[in-house]
Measured scan of single mutants.
Amino acid sequence: HNLTITQGKLFFHYNPKLCLSEIHKMEEVSGTKGRQERNDIALKTNGDQASCENELLKFSYIRTSFDKILLRWEPYWPPDFRDLLGFMLFYKEAPYQNVTEFDGQDACGSNSWTVVDIDPPLRSNDPKSQNHPGWLMRGLKPWTQYAIFVKTLVTFSDERRTYGAKSDIIYVQTDATNPSVPLDPISVSNSSSQIILKWKPPSDPNGNITHYLVFWERQAEDSELFELDYCLKGLKLPSRTWSPPFESEDSQKHNQSEYEDSAGECCSCPKTDSQILKELEESSFRKTFEDYLHNVVFVPRKTSSGTGAEDPRPSRKRRSLGDVGNVTVAVPTVAAFPNTSSTSVPTSPEEHRPFEKVVNKESLVISGLRHFTGYRIELQACNQDTPEERCSVAAYVSARTMPEAKADDIVGPVTHEIFENNVVHLMWQEPKEPNGLIVLYEVSYRRYGDEELHLCVSRKHFALERGCRLRGLSPGNYSVRIRATSLAGNGSWTEPTYFYVTDYLDVPSNIA
């Protein structure tokens, strides 16, 4: 807008934040220059609390790290170098490059900038070799853009010569660093050979998330399962459950009422301010606690030095998902009996873990797994792929695949051998790939016309006998059925096997 004052003059007093240069501009645009008398524009009460600059400061050096910015700028000295009290560095987070010096300023003089007072450097006698002032900004957020400017702080001049310097606002972004852990990993099994893994992005990506790394490792069953005799009275049979499938998407929606109208769909109840505040506090606490764990609990591995020492970490090797089922080394339970199943799973520490690289999504279907087997899954978020990966501390989750139908069934015939004193040795093959492992066998036998009897055969007993022995049988026709019990439950009964026990007292003698 054009402003013209045809008559009258300007009068400025007691404006401590208004620089004289701005008042002189007002004289020019209003056409009143030359009308004012000496005392109409006070030299001592206008701009006496402001830094009124008329020179431009330029930054000469900028260096960044993930949490620091090192700045240096060209030296500046007023005509009387004693008038320079120091520099004021202003900075704040700036997602967009549209910041002005006066953003967030209120009537009390406060604003949204963080201000650092910096002492002037030592003055050199040689004007050509003056030290460049600077400042190291610490405690910054990774991968965050900051708006920065600097200006001088000078003393009051009796001659009211307006001098000083100020830089333009520059924008500097800190470097990326390792992201925080992925949030809320959930693993479920939808079949006997697959596990579905879902997660949420890290709360602090500290860069642009480029991919996720998912490692999985087959877990050995508890050692007590191999040692305890679950045929003993009072000892509860062990059981394991597989990871249940995901709930429906509708039930997972946030901010939804727990109660549904019987007449149909209901609208979600909005969260109160107290609920939102509580969630923010919980989120802040979780982030602080995660940072504490990362800094205190997890110790970084030592990389190899120039002395030739090897990095103890196993090298990563990509495998196809079809090879995942046989990740671990199978060892027989008892070496003397080769027909026992290889369900003991000690994992070799030198073995390469299978892994998958996930790009542009937060889910993965891990296939080719062994049925009813526990897996430990390790999830890392990465925001750099080359020249070397920059990934987060791992988040861990466990899951067990679903049982395989008929995996616990005894394959092959049940054979028998009759000894003296009416002892019958029953023999059968253990299931080759049971659900988890076989903890015991149930032997059901009966003599024709009598009630059915049951015998429990422990895992250890089966390994020693290759089956079991029935003792003290009365003469007669017998039928026997056997079924295995694994961590997933009972298998199917075998087809009945028949044998006849004679009275050993009636056996004919070869003595003449």
Rank of each mutant, 00 (worst) to 15 (best):
S203Y: 14
S203G: 06
S203C: 15
D204N: 04
D204L: 04
P205S: 06
P205H: 05
N206Y: 03
G207E: 02
N208V: 07
H211I: 04
H211Q: 04
Y212P: 00
L213R: 15
L213H: 05
V214P: 00
F215M: 12
W216L: 12
W216C: 04
W216N: 05
E217H: 04
E217C: 07
R218L: 11
R218E: 10
R218Q: 15
R218M: 11
Q219F: 13
A220I: 10
D222L: 11
E224R: 07
E227G: 12
E227Y: 09
E227W: 13
L228N: 10
L228E: 15
D229Q: 15
D229F: 15
D229H: 08
D229A: 14
Y230W: 15
C231V: 02
L232D: 13
L232H: 02
L232S: 12
L232V: 05
K233A: 10
G234W: 11
L235V: 11
K236F: 07
S239V: 12
R240Q: 08
T241M: 08
P244W: 07
P244N: 11
P245C: 04
P245H: 11
P245V: 11
P245G: 15
P245L: 11
F246H: 10
E247D: 06
S248W: 15
E249I: 05
D250R: 08
Q252C: 09
N255Y: 04
Q256M: 14
S257N: 10
S257Y: 11
E258L: 05
E258P: 10
Y259M: 04
D261K: 06
D261T: 07
S262A: 05
A263E: 05
A263T: 09
E265W: 14
E265H: 13
C266V: 15
C266L: 07
C267P: 05
C269F: 13
C269N: 15
P270D: 15
P270W: 12
K271P: 15
T272I: 09
T272Q: 11
D273M: 07
S274A: 15
S274K: 06
S274L: 04
Q275Y: 06
Q275F: 07
Q275K: 12
Q275P: 06
Q275R: 12
I276C: 06
I276V: 09
L277I: 13
E279C: 00
L280S: 03
L280F: 14
E281D: 15
E281H: 15
E281R: 13
E281T: 06
E282Q: 14
E282G: 12
E282W: 14
S283T: 10
S284H: 09
S284P: 05
S284R: 13
F285P: 11
F285E: 14
F285T: 03
F285K: 06
R286N: 03
R286Y: 13
T288Q: 15
T288H: 12
F289P: 06
F289I: 08
F289T: 06
F289L: 08
E290S: 04
E290D: 15
D291R: 07
Y292W: 07
Y292I: 07
L293V: 07
V297P: 06
V297C: 03
F298W: 04
P300C: 15
P300Y: 03
P300E: 12
K302S: 11
K302W: 11
T303Y: 06
S304D: 12
S304N: 13
S305N: 10
S305V: 11
S305G: 06
G306L: 07
T307Y: 15
T307D: 15
A309T: 04
E310Y: 15
E310H: 03
E310L: 09
P312K: 06
P312L: 15
R313W: 03
R313K: 15
S315V: 09
S315M: 10
R316I: 07
R316T: 08
R316E: 06
K317R: 10
K317I: 13
K317W: 05
S320C: 10
L321F: 14
G325D: 15
G325W: 15
N326H: 13
V327G: 09
V327R: 10
V329Q: 08
A330M: 10
P332R: 12
P332A: 15
T333Q: 03
V334Q: 12
V334E: 03
A335V: 10
F337L: 12
F337A: 15
P338S: 09
P338H: 12
P338K: 08
N339I: 08
T340G: 03
T340S: 11
T340W: 14
T340V: 07
S341P: 06
S341R: 08
S342F: 05
T343Y: 12
S344D: 05
V345G: 09
V345T: 10
T347Q: 15
S348A: 04
S348T: 05
E350K: 13
E351P: 10
H352I: 04
R353P: 14
F355W: 13
F355C: 07
E356R: 12
V358M: 09
V359H: 06
K361L: 12
K361V: 04
K361E: 08
K361Y: 13
S363M: 02
S363C: 11
S363D: 03
L364R: 13
V365K: 00
I366P: 00
S367E: 13
S367K: 11
S367T: 05
G368Y: 11
L369A: 14
L369S: 02
L369V: 10
R370L: 07
H371R: 12
H371V: 08
H371W: 07
H371I: 14
H371S: 10
T373C: 02
G374F: 07
G374R: 02
G374E: 15
Y375Q: 06
Y375S: 00
R376A: 03
E378M: 06
E378W: 04
A381F: 01
C382R: 00
N383R: 05
N383E: 02
N383T: 05
Q384F: 12
D385T: 01
T386V: 15
P387S: 10
P387H: 06
E388C: 11
V393L: 06
V393Q: 03
A394M: 07
A394L: 07
A394C: 06
A394S: 05
Y396Q: 12
Y396K: 13
S398A: 08
S398K: 12
T401M: 03
M402S: 12
M402W: 15
P403L: 11
E404I: 09
E404T: 11
E404K: 11
K406F: 14
K406W: 09
K406A: 14
D408N: 14
D408V: 02
D409W: 11
I410M: 05
I410S: 03
V411R: 11
G412E: 03
G412V: 06
V414H: 02
V414R: 02
T415K: 12
H416W: 10
H416G: 06
H416L: 11
H416C: 11
E417G: 12
F419R: 12
E420D: 15
E420P: 14
N421F: 12
N421H: 08
N421E: 15
N422C: 04
V423T: 14
V424Y: 07
L426A: 02
M427Y: 06
P431E: 01
P431T: 02
K432H: 13
E433K: 15
P434F: 14
P434Q: 07
P434H: 06
N435Q: 01
L437S: 00
L437K: 01
I438M: 12
I438G: 01
V439P: 07
V439T: 13
Y441C: 02
Y441R: 00
E442T: 03
S444M: 06
S444C: 03
S444Y: 13
Y445L: 04
Y445F: 03
R446W: 03
R447Q: 14
Y448F: 15
Y448T: 14
Y448W: 15
G449I: 14
G449D: 06
D450Y: 13
E451F: 13
L453M: 07
C456I: 02
C456V: 03
V457K: 09
V457S: 05
S458N: 05
K460D: 11
K460Y: 12
K460M: 09
K460I: 07
K460G: 09
K460F: 11
K460L: 09
F462A: 05
L464T: 07
L464H: 12
E465K: 05
E465N: 10
E465V: 12
R466V: 07
G467R: 11
G467V: 06
G467E: 02
C468I: 11
R469Y: 07
R469K: 05
L470Q: 01
R471T: 09
R471F: 13
G472R: 08
S474T: 12
P475R: 09
G476N: 01
G476C: 00
G476T: 00
N477C: 03
Y478S: 00
Y478N: 00
S479Q: 06
S479Y: 10
R481M: 10
R481Q: 15
R481N: 08
I482R: 01
I482E: 01
R483F: 01
A484I: 02
T485Y: 10
L487H: 00
L487E: 09
A488C: 01
A488N: 15
N490K: 09
N490S: 15
G491L: 01
E495N: 12
E495F: 08
T497Q: 10
T497N: 08
T497H: 05
F499D: 00
F499C: 12
Y500T: 11
V501I: 08
V501Y: 07
D503T: 07
D503L: 12
Y504C: 10
L505E: 12
L505N: 11
D506M: 11
P508W: 07
S509R: 09
S509A: 11
